[in-house]
C-alpha cells in the first residue's frame, strides 16, 4: 500500500511556471490575512487548526511524497511535542517559550529514535514499524499516569495575554506557519530534496552513484519530525489540553490522509487536504460520534479513486492540457 502512494506522486514542478506559483501564493496570502475579518470567531479557530495540521501533513509529505516512505508514526511525534509543552508549563511551572523549544526538541529526538529503527525498511514494513512505534508512545502516555495524567490528560495554563483571543492567535499561528512552510518548500526542492526523490525512484541506483541512502532517509526523517514538533507545540497552545488521543493512531491516520487528499509529493497540497478533512470532521461530528469509522472509509475511498490527491490531479490535468496545446501549436 505504501508503495503505490509514493508512486502516485507525479512530479511536474520542473515545468510549472514560477510566475504562476508566485501569483497563487500572493492570492493565498491575501485570503489568509483577510479571513478573520469575514469569518465568525468559531470558524477562525477552525482555520487555525487547519493551519496547524497542514504543517503536520506537510511534515509527513516530506517523507512520503519525496522519500517514498509512508509513515503512521507522526501523530505520536506531534503529540509528544504537545505533551512536553503542557507538562513543562502546567506541571513544572516553566516558561511557555522554553516549553515550546523543549517540545520541538523532544519531538525531533523521538523522530531520530523512530528513524534509527525504521529507515532500513520500506513499503508496508516501514508503515507497520512506524505504526507500532506510535502505538508504544500512545501506550506510554496512557499508562505513565504519574507524568501524563493517564486518560485524564493534562490541562495547560492558557496562552499568553497577547495571543489569548482567537483572532490574534490565528495571526500568530499564520506568522509561524508561513516561514515554516517556506522552509519545508526550500527543503524538498533543495539538492538534498532531490536526493530523496532519487531514493523514492531507485535506491539501488542511488547507492551505486555514491549516496549513503540510510543517512539521507535518517536526515529526512529527523527534519520531518522537527516540523511535526513545531505543529505539536502550536497545537499545545491551540488546544490547551493533551491526552492520549493526541498521540493515538487516528491522529497519524488523519494527518496522513490530509497529505494524501491534498496530493502526496506536492507539499502545499497538504493545506487543501487539511481543509477538506477538518471540514469533513466538523460536519460529520454534528451527526455522529463515529468519526474514526468515517475517517477509515474516507481513507479507503481516496486510495481507490484519487490516490494522486486534489493537487496531484490538478497538476496532471494541467500538464495534459499543456502537452495538448504544445502539440496543437506544432501542427
Amino acid at each position: 500500500m505504501a508503495t503505490p502512494i509514493s508512486q502516485a506522486a507525479p512530479s511536474y514542478e520542473a515545468r510549472t511556471r514560477p510566475s504562476h506559483v508566485v501569483g497563487w501564493i500572493a492570492l493565498a496570502a491575501v485570503a489568509l490575512i483577510a479571513l478573520p475579518l469575514v469569518l465568525p470567531s468559531y470558524q477562525v479557530s477552525i482555520t487555525t487548526q487547519i493551519l496547524i495540521f497542514s504543517v503536520l501533513a506537510m511534515s509527513i509529505d516530506v517523507l512520503a511524497g519525496y522519500g517514498g516512505r509512508t509513515t503512521l508514526g507522526h501523530g505520536a511525534i506531534f503529540g509528544a511535542s504537545t505533551y512536553v509543552v503542557i507538562y513543562w508549563t502546567a506541571v513544572l511551572g516553566g516558561g511557555i517559550w522554553t516549553g515550546v523549544a523543549l517540545g520541538i526538541l523532544c519531538a525531533t529526538l523521538l523522530a531520530a529514535v523512530f528513524a534509527l529503527l525504521a529507515i532500513r525498511t520500506s513499503g508496508v514494513y516501514f508503515l507497520l514499524l512506524t505504526l507500532a512505534l506510535g502505538m508504544i508512545v500512545w501506550g506510554l502516555c496512557l499508562r505513565w499516569t504519574s507524568v501524563t495524567g493517564g486518560e485524564n490528560g493534562l490541562r495547560g495554563i492558557g496562552r499568553p495575554e497577547f495571543i489569548a483571543d482567537h483572532i490574534s492567535f490565528y495571526y500568530a499561528v499564520l506568522l509561524v506557519v508561513a516561514p515554516v512552510t517556506w522552509a519545508m518548500w526550500r527543503f524538498v526542492h533543495s539538492p538534498f530534496g532531490l536526493t530523496l526523490r532519487g531514493i523514492r525512484d531507485s535506491e539501488s541506483r542511488m547507492r551505486s552513484l555514491g549516496y549513503n541512502v540510510p543517512l539521507h532517509l535518517f536526515i529526512a526523517f529527523v527534519a520531518s519530525g522537527f516540523f511535526a514538533g513545531i505543529a505539536g507545540a502550536l497545537y499545545a497552545l491551540f488546544n490547551n489540553f493533551v491526552s492520549p488521543s493526541t498521540v493515538q493512531l487516528s491522529q497519524s491516520v488523519a494527518a496522513l490522509l490530509m497529505a494524501i487528499t491534498g496530493g502526496v509529493g506536492t507539499l502545499l497540497g497538504s493545506f487543501v487536504g487539511a481543509t477538506l478533512i477538518i471540514a469533513l470532521e466538523n460536519v460529520v461530528s454534528a451527526f455522529t460520534a463515529r468519526w474514526p469509522t468515517v475517517l477509515g472509509v474516507t481513507f479507503v475511498l481516496i486510495m481507490i479513486f484519487a490516490p494522486e490527491g486534489v493537487v496531484g490531479r490538478v497538476r496532471i490535468l494541467l500538464s495534459r492540457r499543456r502537452k495538448r496545446q504544445s502539440s496543437e501549436s506544432l501542427n
Binding site: A9, P10, S11, A14, A183, R186, F187, S190, P191, F192, L194, T195, R197, G198, R200, D201, S202, S204, R205, M206, L209, G210, Y211, H216, A223
Partner: peptide
Amino acid sequence: NLFPSLTVRQNMELAIRGLTPRKFSFF
C-alpha cells in the same frame, strides 16, 4: 535503472552530486 519520475537533467544532477558535498545542501 533510472529515476523515471524526474527529467534527464535531474537524473544527471543526481549522478553528479553523489560524489560532491552539494548532495547535503538542505536549503
